[in-house]
Amino acid sequence: MARNVHVRRGELDIQVLGPLWISCAGTGVVPTARKPRQILALLVLNYSRVVPVATLIDELWDGHAPKTAPAAVQSYVFQLRKKLAEVTGRSMDTVGSEMLRTGQNGYEFVAEPTRFDLRTFHRLERAGVAAMARGDLVTAVQDFREALSLWRGPALADVEPGPGIRAEVAGIEQSRATMLDHRIELELRLGLHREILGELSVLVSHNRFHEDLHAQFIIALYRSGYRARALEAFHRLRKDMVSEFGLEPSPKLHQYYQAVLTSDPALDEMPVLPLPRAAELPVLPAAAGCF
């Protein structure tokens, strides 16, 4: 179900951080048929960039395209333009020139103005990393929390992906995971270990071999006065890793374990993740700026 957002008359609401949802004044645009749905999703992920017809064909048929593939792609784009015209009240010519354009050997989605959750996510990502780089941890946490709240589930959860969508989604999901790691690190540095214990408990249960998350959980438990539970968390991770892979946790995890075991005062200040420097700000396409 789409989030309830206020959208001005004639404005498109685009959401990809969860099931695909594109609408105008509450009326959906997303087709139910698999191939037009894939094309729309890939065009939106490449907002304001031309996606070559060859890339769209590879997305739909993954190396096994029939000779009729170019004509089929053209037909699917026509269907999408027709749907956009219906829901926005614009002519097909206007849709073709201002919303879903024909570009150099391909097509580009350029509909403006829009609300686009992915663009908002990237804007907040940049703002949060910039705040980290200048040492404003409170603002960075606020930006990251707002960005993560945009997610309604796995990106494009209801779209069957081909190679293009799969690659794009992998990058977005990695950005989400990195942001979550940094947000938790910042909250630990701000002394919010008790506030995030419940969330960390759920995260480590879903990410059994994520060593940084386990380290953050161990530190949060220790700082909250749960020394025995912190030791148990390490032993549970070690048991899972040895059983599954025949591997010991990293030396860094062993260092945290020994620090908990000896009640090392350094644990009160010990970081898990280094904070990015200004030079490490994520570089986003110019078109990915947000309203």
Rank of each mutant, 00 (worst) to 15 (best):
E199F: 08
A220D: 03
S224F: 07
E168G: 02
V260I: 05
S250I: 04
V16D: 04
A33R: 03
R3I: 06
L273K: 12
R126D: 09
R152C: 03
R101S: 06
G164L: 00
V169S: 08
A155Q: 04
V95D: 02
V138Y: 11
D13W: 08
A215W: 00
I218V: 14
P52Y: 05
H193D: 08
L148K: 06
R37F: 13
A177F: 15
A215M: 09
L197M: 07
K252M: 03
V141L: 00
R277F: 01
D62H: 07
D240N: 14
G162C: 11
A215V: 03
E248H: 14
P52R: 10
I57Q: 03
I22H: 04
G28N: 15
N4A: 09
K67A: 15
T32R: 14
G106W: 09
V110D: 00
A33P: 01
I165Y: 01
H193C: 06
A147M: 14
E11G: 07
G198M: 06
D181K: 14
L137I: 09
F245I: 04
V138N: 08
C290G: 04
I219R: 12
R238M: 08
A266R: 11
C24M: 12
S224E: 01
L273Q: 11
K239W: 08
A233M: 07
V260G: 00
G289S: 11
H235D: 15
Q38S: 03
A111H: 06
P285K: 06
E187W: 07
W151Q: 13
P163E: 15
T94S: 13
G171P: 00
A71H: 02
V169W: 04
Q142H: 05
D93K: 11
L156P: 06
Q104I: 03
I218S: 07
Y257D: 05
G18T: 15
R101L: 09
N207A: 10
L237G: 08
A72R: 12
Y107S: 00
S48F: 02
V30S: 11
V283P: 00
A230Q: 01
L197Y: 06
A230L: 05
G289M: 09
A288C: 11
E86V: 12
T55E: 01
I57L: 08
A72T: 14
S149H: 09
P66K: 11
H6N: 06
R49E: 07
V283E: 02
A127V: 04
G198Q: 07
H193V: 03
G128Y: 05
D143S: 12
L150C: 09
V283K: 04
C24R: 04
C290L: 05
L190Y: 14
